[in-house]
Design a protein around this nucleic acid. Sequence first.
RNA 1: GGGCGUAUAGCUCAGCGGGAGAGCGCCUCGUUGACAUCGAGGAGGUCCCUGGUUCAAUCCCAGGUACGCCCA
Length: 894
Amino acid sequence: MLDKTYRPDEVEDRQYSRWEAADAFSAKFDATKEPFTIMIPPPNVTGSLHMGHALNNTIQDILVRYQRMQGKDVLWQPGTDHAGIATQMVVERQLGEEGIELDRGLPLALGNTKHIGREEFIERVWKWRDQSGGTILKQLRRLGASCDWQRERFTMDEGLSEAVLKVFVTLYREGLIYRDKRLVNWDPRFHTAISDLEVEQKEMNGHLWHFRYPIEGEEGRFITVATTRPETMLGDTAVAVHPDDERYKDLVGKHAILPLVGRRIPIVADDYADPEQGSGAVKITPAHDFNDFEVGKRHDLEMINVFDRDARLNDGVPEAYRGLDRFDARKKIVADMEAEGLLEKVDDHRHMVPHGDRSHVAIEPYLTDQWYVNAAELAKPAIAAVEQGETVFVPKQWEKTYYEWMRNIQPWCISRQLWWGHQVPAWYGPDGEVFVAHDEAEAAGLAEQHYGKAVELTRDSDVLDTWFSSALWPFSTLGWPEETEALKRYYPGDVLVTGFDIIFFWVARMMMSSLHFMDGKVPFHTVYIHALVRDEKGQKMSKSKGNVLDPLDLIEKFGADAVRFTLTALAAQGRDVKLAESRIEGYRNFCTKIWNAARFNEMNECRYDADFDPAANSQRVNRWIVSQLAQTEPKVRRAIEDYRFNEAAQALYQFIWNTYCDWYLEFAKPLLQGEDAAAKAETRASAQWVLHQALFLLHPIMPFLTEELWQQTGEGDSSLMITSAWPVFAESLTDAEADATLGWVVRMIGQIRAVRSEMNVPPGARIALIVNDASAGSKARIGDHEALIKTLARVETITFDQPVPQGSVQDVLDECSLVLPLAEVIDLDQEQARLKKEMDKLKGEITKLDKKLSNEQFLAKAPEDVVAEQRERLADSQQTMTKLQSALERLASA
RNA sequence: GGGCGUAUAGCUCAGCGGGAGAGCGCCUCGUUGACAUCGAGGAGGUCCCUGGUUCAAUCCCAGGUACGCCCA
């Protein structure tokens, strides 16, 4: 017996274990089947499951389960990335609690007791990773994700590290990776460079300080510069004005004396100075501003770095300022300038300030040596592949975003001043000459060749950006650079499922690296971009706002299937998913509904019958529900294949709840409780078969509930839905006659119920029904389904072609007048009003159609079937109108 | 400043060149042997505005307004 209600907490673990025990998730390397590959977007090893992951992985799981049922050999490749900065942060914090800090050549901070070196630190990270890393992958199991867990990979694995090494060395030797001294985005908290993409611009309230710089040799003359960052003035090496700016024309070529420092700096003419902005003159600090850096290069200016790695002022500035934090320095400099009478004014100013996306501190443009990838070169084939349609974005408009970024791509800074990550495979000779190699021995060989003798080498201490290794995911996880079977079989992948926020970080970089290293073959033919999950008000979920919904809590509360179905139903293309708990509750109710339908079948002895043949059904209601099912399958199939997941969900919801539960089971009741043994047997088998087939269609979205019911009411323990075939229904199962007839019966019952309700007929009261003007066809329909109509519309008797009794309520169904003699309960005024309202609506309709059909242009130009349809509608409306008219007259004469 | 998107019922959103839809919410009624996590019925719309194309526009095009997101 099925339990009274569906209990996801009891079912989910059990079914997941059955799948794993049956090895249902693993890629089979089955050459008789077509492969289907999805590469999971590897979450951070430090991460935990949030709503975005839940959506992302629900979609992937739907695709994967669907394709498995289609008979494909499916690989869903799971894993995590090593999340350089985030992981190092986590472990450093842990160490900090033990009083341990990393030995970076600085004295111990107050309260700390121990330094540890790089090797020991990395050991600690691995230990952390083994103990508590990758919890998110466990959480994905709660969601029902059917990843091939045996193939789980980690970007720091040996094999993947091998791939990183090979890619780095190869690109270096091809000249596509190089070392350069440029301004980088420096994170003063983590002491590392970060890439442009890891910088967030935040709008902030600031000030615009107007400083006066004295002109050399012109006593009492000043040039005023405006700045948002006074602390950088100590590194100024020029003042720039616009070449056409009349105010300053005579000053170009002269020098200013930098206050507080006393340095003599040139006044240069450069387009960068905007005459409209501030005073029109701008201080130039080439070592601390990206724009100034360019100006500096154009005018060959000195680049003076005034900060250390903490963004404190270094020894290159006057003694009074040395060691000051950048924000303290700002205050002091402003005060000192004011004291010298050189502060002209201070304006409030709103501006964008760059922040590290992980450290949340202001980023400092900082002059350092870093490793770069020539992304512009690698982008060329990656752009072409999308232009030529080798990879298609769904929805299509994201291709524009991809192009926009790829066509303006900047050199990619890939080195990070961290310990956790893939160490840059570069060694330096005594004179700083660099040797890039797969290992130290190879580097030593290269060095010996270069110097003519063996020398001592020092390895570059930097590590690579985590995304550098993630970019290789589509092939490194399959064993590249080895030529593995997996690589041959499962590359290229089919579809990548991800959020738009990751197009630049990951999609673009996978495209670049895959095309370069996999013989120009794209890593996936489709990129499905889904929306962000927001709260019910459309705001981004964030801890600080406190509007975060935790998928694990929701699974706990409503079951994984309800969460999955909700996300699926809301995942319309190109729209954000606005999630409210009430939605999940609603789909939890859907689970309950299905469960109860199964219980109903069980109670009525509707048992699974392996030999059941739906084509042999003789009862019209059974042929009808089979027909409806057969028409639902292609809707679901096409929706999934076209990535219109919400439509798949909707089609299933509608079929199961509205068609099967609301109507079919009601239609089946008289048969199930009736005396006709053959009809009863057929109905029992049909009811169960149709439910089971619907569960198969639903399985990719709701795997747990469907598998549970299949086990309990289907083929039992020996069979698994997850590895069963997707149902296919013969065209011949669609039965137009049954659809038309039962559609008509549904309408008839609906109309009678509506009239009863409007007339306030007590729900229990059985009433008489007179049907007038019925065609032979309609009479036959009523004859065939009299029992259903009587039960469901609560009708006592049905008679034909009778005079209309006093005080009857009338309604029209096609050519039929439905007459309900309700003299005792009728309210004449109310009924009159009801009829008039209905006639008004019809009148509008008739006028519209009349006008259209008397338009010669319409008759001449519109397609024939459209014209015919409009004619038919007009005739129908007029017929109904006539009948309502006579009903109204009869009422008035009463 | 550049790019992308959105505007349809109270809310959240589907949809579509030819009869305005769903879920939730709301109102009325209901203990009919699956289900009150339910059933039956109902109310509720200037499909943002203005023009254009078309026999026909909520849908296509142009402009406008408002809002959102990404990039600088």
